[in-house]
């Protein structure tokens, strides 16, 4: 199938859904339009609300806050994950001792930490960053740990026979292997950074997309909720696209098929 057909089919799906939604919420074809539009809003009103947000410019502030929180969560969580992952992988005793605690901490649904972080760090951005960090950290940590552990023994022996010392092994073998695992989980970890930010905002804040959605919901402004959801969706798609660009640059050495099967 060529690209053009594919894109037109993809657009068609959106058009069909929107048209169905529009008909259902404005005509009596499916049911009472008043009831339906109360629960599902109207697509045109949602669109108008989004245009209004962007025209007024108020949305940029909230987007900026959410982006800052997600970016900080990603950077701090990744750094921590890389450092601790490396450290644990190179020190098996340490890894063995902390293994049950790491597992326990990872098993905890992170949402329950949000009130604690709000209590500790206030309602500003840092409580959301902290929530995002707890999500990102474990993904990066496990991937880096695995990446160091799963270096092919043949590649490792070969590197040693080529005369590499410990430091050079770290730089030329362990690090690239670990980072390749980390990069292949980039979509997941970036996604979780956004989740942390938005859930944190939703549970208590004064700014951000999560706050916007929560505010609309608390006054039964379904149009506002849907508009917020779509803005969030667009934002995540944009971030994901950027991640794909970065990933394609960083993982050029990988065979294409394995990248696809990794997702």
């Amino acid at each position: 199938m060529n690209r053009l057909t594919l894109i037109s089919l993809q657009v068609l799906v959106a058009v069909v859904v929107l048209v169905f939604w529009h008909i259902a919420s404005t005509t009596t074809l499916i049911g009472n339009p008043k009831t339906i539009s109360f629960f599902f809003a109207e697509p045109l009103a949602v669109g108008k609300r989004m245009v209004q947000w962007f025209m007024e410019g108020s949305i940029w502030y909230h987007l900026g806050i959410t982006l800052t929180e997600a970016a900080l969560a990603f950077i701090i969580g990744s750094l921590g994950g890389v450092i601790i992952g490396f450290w644990f992988a190179r020190k098996p005793l340490l890894a063995a001792v902390f293994d049950p605690y790491v597992k326990a901490a990872n098993a905890l649904p992170r949402v329950v930490l949000a009130p604690i972080f709000a209590l500790w760090l206030g309602l500003g951005i840092w409580s959301k960053v902290a929530l995002g960090v707890t999500l990102v950290f474990f993904i990066v940590f496990f991937n880096v740990y695995q990446g160091v552990k799963e270096v092919s023994p043949a590649v490792l022996s070969n590197a040693r026979m080529l005369g590499m010392n410990e430091r050079q092994l770290l730089r030329h073998v362990y690090m690239p292997s670990a980072l390749s695992w980390m990069f292949s989980s980039l979509h997941t970890s970036v996604g979780f950074a956004v989740v942390g930010a938005v859930v944190g905002e939703y549970l208590g804040s004064a700014a951000g997309l999560g706050y916007l959605i929560h505010e609309a919901e608390s006054v039964f402004d379904v149009t506002g909720v849907f508009a917020g959801m779509f803005v969030l969706m667009g934002f995540v798609i944009l971030v994901d696209w950027l991640v794909t660009l970065v990933e394609n640059r960083l993982l050029v050495w990988r065979p294409k098929t394995s990248v696809i099967s990794n997702r």
Binding site: S152, A154, V155, S157, N158, A159, M161, L162, G163, M164, N165, Q168, H172, V173, P176, S177, S180, W253, R254
Partner: peptide
């Protein structure tokens, strides 16, 4: 230290290009 070893399995570093794989032995 006198030995060079060509392994049975693939043992090139997959994240390095052919020329970087060859150069690394001198670089280290």
């Amino acid at each position: 230290k006198h030995a060079g070893y060509l392994f049975q399995q693939d043992s090139l570093m997959p994240w390095k290009t052919a020329i970087d794989n060859v150069a690394i032995g001198l670089e280290v």
